[in-house]
């Protein structure tokens, strides 16, 4: 099981705890797993079969550059966060 942390606003919308357990061998399957458990959640994270440009996924401390095809071997926690603009 992988610990998943969703953005505060998503947690509020779906009435979720801070941490939820999920599984999946890649990010796409993990989100599908979450969507079955919490219908509609996928819409918050995915648009046009891509991770939304406004969302980033931080996998054990590193933001994935690969989006939904990111493999999840031996991953312990994933944070979905708003993408951060800066410069």
């Amino acid at each position: 099981m992988i610990k998943v942390f969703l953005p505060y606003k998503t947690r509020k919308l779906f009435d979720l705890p801070v941490e939820i357990d999920a599984e999946g061998n890649n990010l796409r399957n993990l989100i599908e797993f979450l969507d079955i458990k919490y219908p509609g959640l996928k819409q918050e994270l995915v648009d046009d079969e891509k991770l939304k440009p406004t969302i980033s996924a931080v996998i054990d401390g590193r933001t994935t550059r690969l989006g939904l095809i990111q493999k999840l071997d031996k991953v312990s926690e994933i944070h979905f966060l708003p993408s951060i603009a800066g410069g």
């Binding site: 939304k52 440009p53 406004t54 993408s83 951060i84 603009a85 800066g86 410069g87």
Partner: peptide, 9 residues
């Protein structure tokens, strides 16, 4: 349409 990336959003 949102243009979201780390530089221009």
């Amino acid at each position: 349409k949102q243009r979201g990336n780390s530089e221009e959003s």
